[in-house]
Simulated scan of single mutants.
Amino acid sequence: MPKEQVTRNDVALHAGVSTAVVSYVVNDGPRKVAPETRDRVLAAIRALGYRPNESARALRMGTSRTFGLITPDGGNPLFAELAKAIDREAAARGYVVLQTSADGDPQTENAKIAELLARQVSGLVLVAPTDAPRLDKVEVPVIAVNRRLRAVSSVRPAYHEGARLAVEHLISHGHRRIGLVIGGAGHPERELGWREALALAGLPEGPIARATFSRDGGYRAGQTLLRHEPTAIFASSDLQAIGVLRALHEEGVDVPGDVAVVAFDGTPETEYTWPPLTVVRQPVEALAREAVRRLIEGEQSVEALTVPTELIRRRSCGC
């Protein structure tokens, strides 16, 4: 019968230590081990013929050169584009990215974090994470993208300023009753930008429809807003805006003749809606570049870096 492979558990049992101590000895860190304990672990490794795997050897040299990437929804065009940008940026610097999705669920997110750490990634990128990722015992760099997290380095677009810019553009077209399609609690900045633009122009707040960040959510929100007769709609995501367009078309509402529409995100598919959507474009490449730089260089400043957005004018607003 073939000889069973010796595991780290076997070494730990032989030396009378925990598997974590074996890991610290094999990888020369991240925690110090008493010389006597270290010698005992090394003796057990020699006696059992233990051979660390490739990941452990890479970590002994200082890094596995692998990042773990968790997005809330792999099917969302924005997160797919952002993941590709992060992968390209990491590859250009000699790193590999392991990507998975959490479906916006805290329990799934924490399970995925644990799984990636078990694979010995040298850093974690959390895109739009939930409010409750368990990071207190994580010993590798962590970067949050598109959302702030307490005590974690983060990079994010200028949500508030970008939303204000979009609504100001609609106001410049003469609109005075501008509705808002927005996600639920936890995403306040785009709503604040909408409110601020209206207040600065001396306009009353238009109708609000709260919906999921999805095509279906936007579709249902569009049906709701039509009952309040807005002349323009600001949708807080591309997917919502696409759903809004369908709702408007089904009711025979002309865009932009009857109702103008502007969206936030700026994914490529907004170029191919009808009419093409005016968007506030997220700085995807800049976000990816900064996230990878911070992971590699070990920059763990908890001050969030905010990257400017860009207004791209197309036909849906009347331009």
Rank of each mutant, 00 (worst) to 15 (best):
A199F: 04
R57A: 11
P230D: 03
R38F: 03
R134Q: 15
Q282V: 07
A247L: 02
V25I: 01
D258S: 11
L239R: 13
G49S: 08
H187K: 06
G184P: 00
A128F: 06
V127T: 08
L165I: 07
I70K: 07
G202E: 14
P72S: 06
R294C: 09
Q99H: 09
V259G: 07
E161F: 05
A221V: 09
D28E: 13
T130F: 05
H175W: 11
V127W: 01
H228Y: 06
V22D: 04
M61D: 13
P276K: 11
L48I: 00
T19R: 13
E115K: 11
H249P: 00
A201V: 02
H249Y: 06
F234R: 04
E89F: 09
L149R: 04
A47M: 03
L78R: 01
G186M: 10
A209D: 10
G206I: 07
D216T: 15
K3M: 15
L126P: 02
H249F: 07
V125Q: 05
A128M: 09
L180G: 04
C317W: 10
Q240D: 07
A56P: 01
A58W: 05
R93V: 05
W194K: 05
G29F: 07
E115Y: 11
P2V: 15
T66H: 06
K137S: 15
P204W: 04
K112L: 13
G123K: 03
L239T: 10
E115C: 10
E229T: 14
E285K: 10
A144T: 10
R289K: 11
A43W: 00
E81K: 01
R313N: 03
A15W: 09
Q107C: 03
R177F: 02
A80C: 02
L277W: 09
S18D: 14
A221E: 13
S18M: 10
L135I: 01
A85G: 04
T231R: 00
E139Q: 14
A34H: 06
A128R: 08
V142T: 12
Q99L: 14
R51Q: 15
A34C: 02
N110G: 01
N53P: 05
D28H: 11
E269D: 13
A163N: 10
L165M: 15
P256T: 13
F79L: 00
D258A: 13
F79K: 00
A166L: 04
L225W: 03
R57K: 13
T63C: 06
L311E: 08
P188C: 05
E229N: 12
L245C: 11
A304G: 10
E161C: 04
P129T: 12
Y272R: 04
T66G: 07
G183K: 02
C319E: 06
Q223C: 12
E229I: 02
R177Y: 05
A241Q: 12
I86C: 08
P256E: 08
A83T: 14
R177T: 15
G206M: 09
D131R: 10
C317S: 14
L149F: 12
A90H: 03
R60S: 13
C317A: 06
G49Y: 06
R60E: 00
L98E: 06
R215D: 05
V302G: 08
R93C: 04
N27P: 02
H228W: 02
H14Q: 15
E139S: 15
S154G: 10
P268R: 11
R195P: 00
Q107R: 08
I143T: 05
G104L: 06
E4W: 04
L69H: 08
